[in-house]
């Protein structure tokens, strides 16, 4: 009971806040908006609030998901309004609905994530180059090992579901990719793009690349929002 799914966007400079910052920021926003969250029982109770999937520092998103359990029932629209009054500039809730409880956590349902990747400006590799790169039978990317600075090789091929060129002109190159996300398999699109740029000897462009998450999906490619409708 009183379990809600909240969809929100993250735009502008606030994209430089980390996953932990976002957690703190939302807890405060609920407190500020006078929405009382339910607490876990036990020795050090914590509020029942969790994100479906962490967003990398520096990424914008048009489609983030947060689930909460409230201490008392409320209208989803009222929760959304109160939240929007309490969030800092750049973070905005677009939808909110009640979802059944108990159930699997959102985080455990996530399998795939869609990203829009943009290289702004006229000077960029061609979209065709990207598609050729992706077409190779094995795609080696360099991934940071958990908890260390060491880089290890990963084959990205099975982690890429789909990749398309959205636009390729003087204003920039824009790509849409769907890659693995979640606890069992995960590919950060930064790793993919870094490898691609390195392969075409344009690694210096990496700092200007913009990443935006556009959707999270379950294993059947249904968006998280639609799972419970």
């Amino acid at each position: 009971m009183n379990r809600y799914l909240i969809k929100f966007t993250k735009q502008g400079l606030v994209r430089y806040t980390s996953h932990l910052d976002m957690m703190r920021l939302f807890q405060r926003a609920f407190k500020r908006g006078n929405i009382r969250l339910a607490y876990s029982s036990g020795f050090s109770p914590h509020p029942k609030i969790s994100f479906a999937h962490p967003l990398s520092l520096g990424f914008t998103s048009s489609s983030e998901y947060l689930e909460i359990v409230c201490a008392e029932a409320g209208e989803p629209s009222a929760i959304q309004e109160a939240l929007n009054r309490s969030l800092p500039h750049g973070i905005h809730s677009t939808r909110c609905k009640e979802i059944p409880e108990p159930g699997k956590t959102m985080a455990s349902l996530v399998r795939w994530a869609s990203y829009r990747i943009t290289l702004p400006g006229a000077d960029h590799p061609g979209g065709q180059q990207f598609l050729e790169y992706i077409d190779q039978p094995v795609l080696i990317g360099k991934k940071r090992k958990k908890g260390s600075k060491e880089l290890v090789d990963v084959d990205m091929k099975p982690l890429i579901h789909n990749a398309t060129v959205v636009s390729d002109d003087a204003s920039g190159l824009s790509l849409d990719v769907i890659v693995s996300a979640g606890s069992s398999a995960n590919l950060n699109p930064e790793v993919l793009l870094q490898s691609f740029l390195d392969s075409v000897k344009r690694g210096e462009l990496f700092p200007v690349v913009q990443f935006e998450r556009t959707e999270l999906h379950d294993e059947t490619m249904i968006s998280l929002w639609n799972i419970f409708s």
């Binding site: 400079l13 606030v14 500039h89």
Partner: peptide
Amino acid sequence: LELLLPKVEKPARYIGGEL
């Protein structure tokens, strides 16, 4: 400034926009 932010540690130190 936005071009510098990806290159530094804790870029949110420099962005403003707090509540």
